[in-house]
Design a binder for these strands. Structure first.
Length: 122
RNA sequence: UCAGUUGGCUGGAUGGCCGCUAUCAUUUGCGUGGUAGAGGAAAGUCCGGGCUCCGAGGAGACAGGAUGCCGGAUAACGUCCGGCGAGGGUGACCUUAGGGAAAGUGCCACAGAAAGGAUACCGCCCUGCUUUAUGCAGGGUAAGGGUGAAAGGGUGCGGUAAGGGCGCACCGCGUUUUUGGUAACAAAGGCGGCUUGGUAAACCCCAUCCGGAGCAAGACCAAAUAGGGGCAGCGCGAAACAGCGUUGGCGCAAGCCUUCACUGCUUUCAGAUCCGUCUUUUGAUUGACUGCCCGGGUUGGUUGCAUGAGAUGUCUGGUAACAGCCAUCCUAGAUGAAUGGUCAUCGCCCUACCGAUAUAAUGUCGGCAGGGUACAAAACCCGGCUUACAGGCCAACUGAUAUU
RNA sequence: GCACCCUUCGUCUAGCGGCUUAGGACUCUGCCCUUUCACGGCAGCAACACGGGUUCAAAUCCCGUAGGGUGCA
């Protein structure tokens, strides 16, 4: 059993692009993507946060990223797998929706994102 | 009390749990604790500066751009303050790119007779002919009609054949004098009889200002790739010695000291950025070095980077913008980008309902429910401008109504 | 962050300050033609990003705002 370290933050555009076509789970408020971390280490968990201009102005984008960081802080332990990278993409609703709904979405998304969906199989 | 004008301030509070960035202390270390941590616009990037690099001898000119009543403030400004003119509002007050149109050029569509050296369609008047109703011809006019955004001063009276600055009064315009004011300008008087329509956010003229690029500027370090290609790198000796001549001085003379020039298979140093090689001597060339360009690679870190035209307060000068003295203080520094997430309670606002109360309209207080609690995130730093903003507060002033 | 550019029918575009009710092509709608469709012909719908200002007059000139787009280590 590998003891996972504290999650790190993804900062390079390359890492975000690598996860673009990996498995994902969509909720009305955000999208979670997951994939291998490209040789960063067996015990490393990394999270990336993205909010595009569709979310709103700078204040809304910063608030969306901060809420996503709070979600990761609460739920990464036990649900995130070591040796994987995760990317959270904000959708416009995430700024207004109450935090309870986001917590349920996050728990569900972390459980389901590793199950490959049927249409992704070949 | 209602309506309004101007200026300024503020931009929710408390607590629990979980976190971020910087820094300090402590610890072998994991870690723990303390302190600090977005704005009035941080925004748009519309102006002005600091700072950095490039260019340039100082400076100026052409081109291009900007500004534009007067005086002041300022590091500077297209900003601000005070004043003037014009326009708007009952008023407090607001708006104002507001130099030059007799330096020149252009434009003024359509309509209209005529659009800038005025002109004459309908009219009005006079004369002549025909005739007594009009018509025709010639002339005088610009009051009236009509067109237009604009018709070559306006109104009134006199005058006239009808009219007309033809004459007069007032207003306007031009010019001039005096007075007030630093000035823009204002007031009063004289003169001219009117000659000169608008447009410069059309070209232009005048005055003033502006070199270019921007912290992704610039500097350093590390790593990686490569160990590449091209171009350029400013020269035309100096000294010593010897010989011969020569200038000056001392000396009877020999000679000694001294100045300058020429010559030498002479010597030393230099010589083209450096080293080497060739040749025979001021040439050639390999390589290295330096600079620039091309090509290739990297997409990291440090610095610039927060003590500054700094903030607060008292006083002084000034109508004010602002300036000065003194005292105190240090107040964000991120880089997929920190300064928060969440829960609870309270506050504030709006709407509906209930109750009480004073009523001319309606307002005030209490309770309960629902909804809302803005605009917006530093990115080198300052001074402004513009734009966005739920609401709340303060001060001064104006108008209307009522009462005393 | 900094430096710039552009907005005209649904789309692509013309457009000396007045001649314009903003022109053309494609599209769309209706009618004609054809047995029918296509092609063709005729007619129609449809735009100056927004707000101020200058001017007698603004799509055009000036200022501001909004929305798009481009470049720079």
């Amino acid at each position: 059993m590998i003891t996972p370290k504290q999650p790190q933050t993804l900062k390079n555009r390359k890492d975000f692009l690598r996860l673009r076509h990996s498995s994902k789970w969509v909720t009305p408020n955000f999208i979670l993507q997951a994939g291998g971390n490209g040789g960063a280490g067996e015990d490393v968990i990394r999270f990336g946060y993205t909010a595009s201009k569709k979310v709103g102005n700078a204040v809304a984008r910063n608030r969306a990223k901060r809420r996503m960081r709070a979600l990761v802080r609460l739920y990464w332990s036990g649900l995130a797998r070591p040796g994987h990278d995760y990317v959270l993409i904000a959708r416009p609703k995430i700024v207004q929706v109450s935090f309870d709904i986001l917590e349920k979405d996050m728990e569900k998304a972390l459980k389901h994102v590793h199950k490959p969906r049927r249409k992704d199989r070949k």
